[in-house]
Design a protein around this nucleic acid. Structure first.
Lengths: 237, 237
DNA sequence: ACTTTTTCCTGACGCCACGTCAGAATAGAA
DNA sequence: TTCTATTCTGACGTGGCGTCAGGAAAAAGT
């Protein structure tokens, strides 16, 4: 068949196995909880073999983060196609964020780890490049929706502000919310009991602030986002 | 004079010294860069003495985070008193966020570390309590501004939403922005060149979305925030 | 002033994790 | 079957965390 004989395939398969084993450990016990010795023991290989695939622990995290970022990008892409109206497309992307952070918490968590400067700096140039490219493409999807909205006059963005800077606002809002939810165990004590609904309401209000057409009542928007969420799902490799 | 004789004072002073030495290391070289041996060497004490003050490394981070959270709370408090109009008070708090994240980056960074679950869980019950309390008070300041705004009819918040959930939106927006700025080295590549101005614009727009009175043009708002920022400064213990 | 007790300081030690590397084992070519 | 190239292995070096028995210093007692 293929000339990627024995060893080659075995290598690829093992790489997948390493990542598949590492992710749950990383999510459940954090960066410090993932030990190379333990990981090697859990597969049936020696530690040195692990280091044939990844030059250090950080690279494993980076590889996992790339998988996660790719998943998110695909979810954004699908979401952005769920409606012809620009505001609804943006809402669908919002739903994708909900779903990603809520149902793919293990991906969101790994993504977060790479925001640690030490881990980022120790990962290889090549993977850093891949990550930047993926983020760039993801931003491109959302900025595309914004530009389309401007083109059909559903939306005006202030002079001097790029579509990307416009997106940055929504990005900050959703990212900030889910980062706080994930890391602030005392949110309910503080008085925030239903953060997801809050986030949706604030996102909806921000759109209103920009007069993104067509305006529609929040209840209708919420219903619509639930529908989007169902159609997005989270199910794929 | 006091009955807090020799040892007592020496203890307190040493505790301050530990924290003062640890902060720059922590900020510049991250959590992993801070080593107890090194810290002990840098003071003229043995490692064991360090462990008389803090039972583990995490507690040092927690102690530093408390200092930082307290600084932020004081900045919020001062900011909230800079104007009689509710919308301007909220903007002043926004300015405080700017200043805190920009000029007190070392505090923001330490605060971030405590959002790591592993570090949080290893820190003592007592310090966790202190941190929760401080966050609670900080939220109280902002929620108070919101409630005052509602009381004088500058603002209506949607039925069923608490003042705290309302604040959560602005909190997410600003926190998300500065977290992204601090951790996404590729923001300029992606197309976000002046994040601070972006954040201000989005915050201003979100307020508009809620019809927070009195409406005023963005240029005026921006000028006002610059003035607030100067009056807030960052200078104190 | 001198002993006793308590409190505090010290640094060597045990343990564990990362990443390396010389040598063993294995696959493939001749 | 023999030889070469590649891959695998796990003991080792390094370094960091947290402990603890023993020594030093302060406080209390006489």
């Amino acid at each position: 068949m293929s000339e990627t004989t024995g060893k080659q395939r075995e290598m690829q398969q093992r790489e997948r196995q390493i990542l598949a084993l590492a992710r749950p450990i990383l999510v459940e016990e954090g960066y410090q909880g993932l030990s190379m010795d333990r990981l090697a023991a859990q597969m049936k290989y020696a530690k040195g073999t692990l280091y044939n695939h990844f030059p250090n622990k950080e690279e494993i995290v980076a590889a996992l983060a790339i998988e996660s970022l790719e998943l998110r990008r695909r979810m954004f892409e699908r979401a952005s196609l769920l409606s012809p109206r620009s505001r609804e497309r943006m809402m669908a992307i919002g739903s994708a964020c909900d779903t990603y952070a809520t149902e793919c918490g293990e991906h969101f968590a790994v993504e977060q780890m790479l925001r640690n400067a030490v881990i980022w700096e120790k990962s290889s140039q090549k993977r850093q490049e891949l990550i930047r490219h993926c983020e760039f493409r993801t931003m491109g999807i959302v900025a595309g929706v914004v530009r389309d909205a401007v083109a059909v006059a559903d939306l005006q963005i202030p002079p001097g502000m790029s579509a990307e800077e416009f997106v940055f606002g929504f990005w900050s809002l959703t990212y900030g919310s889910y980062a706080l939810v994930a890391s602030s165990p005392s949110l309910p004590d503080i008085g925030v009991t239903d953060p997801v609904r809050s986030i949706r309401y604030h996102g909806w209000t921000l759109m209103n602030g920009y007069h993104w057409q067509p305006l529609l009542p929040f209840e209708a928007a919420e219903e619509m986002m639930n529908t989007f969420a169902k159609r997005i799902g989270a199910h794929d490799a």
